[in-house]
Design a protein around this nucleic acid. Sequence first.
DNA 1: TTGTAAGCGTTATCAC
DNA 2: GTGATAACGCTTACAA
Lengths: 359, 359
Amino acid sequence: MPKSDPTRPVTTHDVARRAGVSQATVSLVLSGNPRARVAAATRERVMEVAEELGYRPNILARGLVRGRSYALGVVVPDLTNPFFLDVVTGAQRVASEAGYAVLPGDTRESTPARHLEALRARQVDGVIIDGVGAATLPHDSLSDLKVVVVDEPSERWPGVASDALAAGRLAAEHLLGLGHRRVAFIGPATDVHSFRMRERGFFQALRDGGVGLPHEWLRRVPPSVGGGQRGMKALLAGERPTAVFCANDLIAMGALKAALTAGVNVPRELSIVGCDDVEMASVVTPELTTIAVPARELGARAARLLLRQLAGEEVPARPGKLLPVRLVRRATTAEPQGTGDGEQGTAGTDAPASPPSGT
Amino acid sequence: MPKSDPTRPVTTHDVARRAGVSQATVSLVLSGNPRARVAAATRERVMEVAEELGYRPNILARGLVRGRSYALGVVVPDLTNPFFLDVVTGAQRVASEAGYAVLPGDTRESTPARHLEALRARQVDGVIIDGVGAATLPHDSLSDLKVVVVDEPSERWPGVASDALAAGRLAAEHLLGLGHRRVAFIGPATDVHSFRMRERGFFQALRDGGVGLPHEWLRRVPPSVGGGQRGMKALLAGERPTAVFCANDLIAMGALKAALTAGVNVPRELSIVGCDDVEMASVVTPELTTIAVPARELGARAARLLLRQLAGEEVPARPGKLLPVRLVRRATTAEPQGTGDGEQGTAGTDAPASPPSGT
DNA sequence: TTGTAAGCGTTATCAC
DNA sequence: GTGATAACGCTTACAA
């Protein structure tokens, strides 16, 4: 008989009454308190009755007295971006194993600050912040809150990050290695650290390879499919590059779409490199060459870091080692073909013709 | 001075003390109780102090006494599927407007029952269930829990659903209208209602059109990109159909991928129709013809239904009107070309080579 | 109009 | 070992 009451959930009192012991004893037994010294017989009896009555602890009540909610917040800019969803999923996995719930939220129709407000009203024990520029948040919106930042170095909070600089470099080196000298970049104007670093790494490696990039080839768009399409359209309207690096896969897929729509042969006439390696990257045709970033792992580690802090451990506010990224060569990159409308190299290897351009 | 205490959150007691009133009065003022008759001056003073101290109500404590957690659970099979994510997002929007939090969870690495267990431990006030066959769940895992089902008719719970039967019909009619007679289906073997209905609608309309379908053209695969690829590979290995309807867009994109990889010209040699109209459907090339299903709207309505129940309203356990779906014609469908390897019609209209097609 | 007091379901500190 | 008892922060009669 799993139940008998009208509909009210079973409490420790119910169990106590039925088992003929005090409510406190029931709590002692059921709360899994390690140093609960209860007679084996009593414990047995209590557990039995609890089972029989279908008792489930009320986590809220427990949280109230322990000053914990056993819930974590995760704030990302856009859950619709599979990358961030993976971060959330990764966090969710380790959190739920530890008995914590995850309250995900994105800032598409709200501000991060507003979101954090709601989270602290729910007494979340901590939050994971990714991609919303934690450093730029209203200072007190994170005060007295355990925080872990993802992909954003900070001397205020601990965090985990991927090697975004390397991601950019990898993209550039891949393109350079293929022989490209006329390369463009599509990415957001943002203060989100990982985007900036991807961009920086890309330009650094380009410069190291003696390649510069004119202003028209640096397109600022939102980090979305639509942004990518817009960026690519703009690029195609002018003097065309032979390769483009996009700050994330959403942009890259949008760019690819726009290129294909315009009748551009990818990768023959134009190479495209994305970043993140979301699932869809290998579903579009041609398959997207991209830089794989371990999103789930980032989320999982962030959660672990947070959990450790909640366990009382002092976690230093230094980001640990950067998680490695890697180039995934697929089908949107190839050697540039002499497309006939002139070459443009700045130095380095061969490629004469057209004059060099500044950074 | 936003704060002054060490780090402990501000409580109603703190506010009361500082404002020189009783804690109860503070609660009266701050809980927004409509019938709280408090002197304007007092109210003013309390609000002032609360603001000054940075008071935030503890939702958990409130929930404990009110017997509410102000949290909703949403259970879907796979958050990675943009369709379900949209359902969640839609629910989230209306829930958060009403001050409710949403605890999303999928059943990829867990069972629905297990998930519901965790949700009720958190005292969620209700759950929205989509795509996991609520009817097949262990009977007591939903007992004494407010439930709204999405895309699943039930005489036990209220729900919202899209017109899945029409979705299937629309797909079939579109294909039939184009002149296809050799059509296949790729979908999951499942007891999820909407999948079954899409399938049924498809076959009904086919039959109405006088078209039958041999066993080899009914491929059972998981409702994922990988499943779609597998299904299409199998299809291509045998006698080929001229068109395929896939039970969802993930499958369709996988199928498209596999077809393209095999060098099949889509839609020239093979038409593909998906279902859901996820964002990526219009990003792949060629763009996917699909049946649009209002995912966010489903989620939003489900949440509203749940909220109404929580407000005490008696919501009948009958699904309301089915939300309309519509065909989105894009680039993966076209009239069948005489591909040379023989025709196979079961009856019906004519449609020889390439006659005009309907709108 | 405002304060007192009794919980909500748990945990945790004591005496017994 | 076990059972009172006091919180946790809040809401809500009911009394003043």
